[in-house]
Amino acid sequence: MILSEAELIEIRQHLHQIPELALKEFQTHDYLLSIIDQLKQDYLEIEIPQKLPTAILVLVKGSNPKRTIGYRTDIDALPVTEKTGLSYSSKHSNIMHACGHDIHMTVALGLLSYFSENQPKDNLLFFFQPAEESESGGKKAYELGIFHDQFKPDEFYGLHDNPNLPAGAIGCRIGTLFAGTTEVNIDVNGKSGHAAFPQNANDTVVASASLIMQIQTIISRSIDPIQSGVITLGKVEAGTIRNVIAGHTRIEGTIRGLTQKMILEIDDRLRDVCQGIARSYNMEVKLELNQGGYWPVENDPELTKKFISYMKNNPEVKYIETPPAMTGEDFGFLLAKFPGVMFWLGVEDDSELHSATLTPNEKSIMRGVDAVKGFLIDRMEN
């Protein structure tokens, strides 16, 4: 069966009620399988990776394949308490599809239902991916070897909903769509002491203040101003009481960059600055950098040109050229391993992504299915 718009909306609303956190998407997984099992099975091969049990791989066998085209959707949710007031609000306490992954999954099911009835020319691989919001699910999938044999794509595509675009609009750009992100943790260790006798202590607050100011120069003086990078230090903890010199300070923040090369350059400069502060203040400065799988989403130039050309020339699609965003997405790791394209699907809402009031316009679902379906068919002819 090909899922109708009404059926897709019903599926989306059910998914919205059962959000689950990274690597715990068991109810979501079972519901997705129940829908997939209702589809025509003639061309389908389903695999559940034992090493990543909430993931689902569905291969649609092509009639005359010359490639395997991958399509990825993420399936996890966020630790957000929903405040939409919808009749189909989350039934799971303090968990919500506040990033719109319920929309992502529903579009993927709509595409899968179409190609289950209309055999594609090329092989199509649908990857229902756990743990996008945390735990680097894309990286885990790759490193666990779940893309193997016929389940290994030659190219990969995926969308992300965008409340700032009209419902059903497609947004994309050549180059980076999402920034890569790296978590920054810094521990500055000195010596505590009485506030009246600073000569007998080693004040980590003073050293950390200098460190924080020097870190701010990395972007302004070490990175090409034509490019974009961000270092934000959002949390600083030190001390216990006003008249005791702090012997330890903890600084936490994040790095954002539009290319992996830029992120690595920022990492190197951050190490240099930390080493310099350690020597200058005779302290131990421990730097921890954790990027995981949240690499920049760098679209393949040639495939992106084909994608944009199709969307621009399709009179049924409203195509919008979009600027890069500094938000993170773990599809970037997969695009570093397989050529492909990530793009926006407009869902037209006043609330932003990750908001407790995010309410995507459900008209975007079928419009998204039709736009992506048309591109995939076109891609198989080229």
Rank of each mutant, 00 (worst) to 15 (best):
S228F: 12
V230S: 15
I231F: 14
I231R: 12
T232G: 14
E237M: 05
E237Q: 14
E237F: 11
E237D: 11
E237V: 08
T240A: 09
T240S: 14
I241N: 13
R242E: 04
R242T: 02
I245W: 01
G247P: 11
R250I: 04
I251F: 01
I251W: 04
G253W: 13
G253E: 11
R256G: 08
L258A: 12
L258Y: 13
T259H: 11
Q260R: 10
K261P: 09
L264P: 11
E265T: 09
E265V: 00
E265W: 04
I266M: 05
D267P: 06
D268F: 08
L270P: 10
R271M: 04
R271I: 07
V273L: 02
Q275Y: 03
I277H: 10
I277V: 11
A278L: 01
A278G: 12
R279C: 04
R279D: 06
S280F: 10
M283T: 07
M283L: 14
E284Y: 04
E284T: 13
V285E: 07
V285H: 09
K286A: 03
L287T: 07
L287K: 02
L289N: 00
N290M: 10
Q291W: 06
G293M: 04
W295R: 05
P296L: 01
E298H: 08
N299M: 02
D300E: 10
P301S: 15
E302Q: 15
T304K: 12
T304M: 10
K306T: 12
F307P: 09
S309Y: 15
S309I: 01
Y310Q: 05
Y310K: 07
M311N: 09
K312F: 08
K312E: 15
N313F: 13
